[in-house]
Amino acid sequence: MADAVTVRLTVNGVEREGRCEPRKLLVDFLREDLGLTGTHVGCEHGICGACTILIDGEAARSCIMLAVQADGAELLTIEGLMRDGKLHPLQEAFREHHGLQCGFCTPGMLMTALDLLRTNPSPTEAEIREGISAVLCRCTGYHGIVRAVEAAARKMR
């Protein structure tokens, strides 16, 4: 039982392939099999949000999804956020507004904010707080993050 399976997917625009057990979590596959350690593991039960990535354009937790389920999917991780060697406006804004300290929640926070701004390009502060409440940050008190998302929204509109 439990023979290894082949997983083929596109990550950050690049086609990748790996073999793993069916039980392997998508986040572990990204980190261990594809060497993309920018996505972090924080709780493995879908609460902290550090592992959030975009799957076919929508934010989802990669710690509560199997790698084999992502076969054929298009993923975006923090490593793929830059364009043409330049920081994404969200990345810029996080730096400008001190939206990170230890950096551990940052990948999930950025990917969640990206999805938030796609579904709601002009969020109020309350909507930003509600949107990023999907990710736990223990360092910043979220203040700089909220400011950063506000600023990025203005720039991306």
Binding site: G46, G49, A59, A60, R61, M65, T112, D115, T119
Partner: peptide
Amino acid sequence: GHLPIRTR
């Protein structure tokens, strides 16, 4: 939950 939970 949250939006990333509702995605799946």
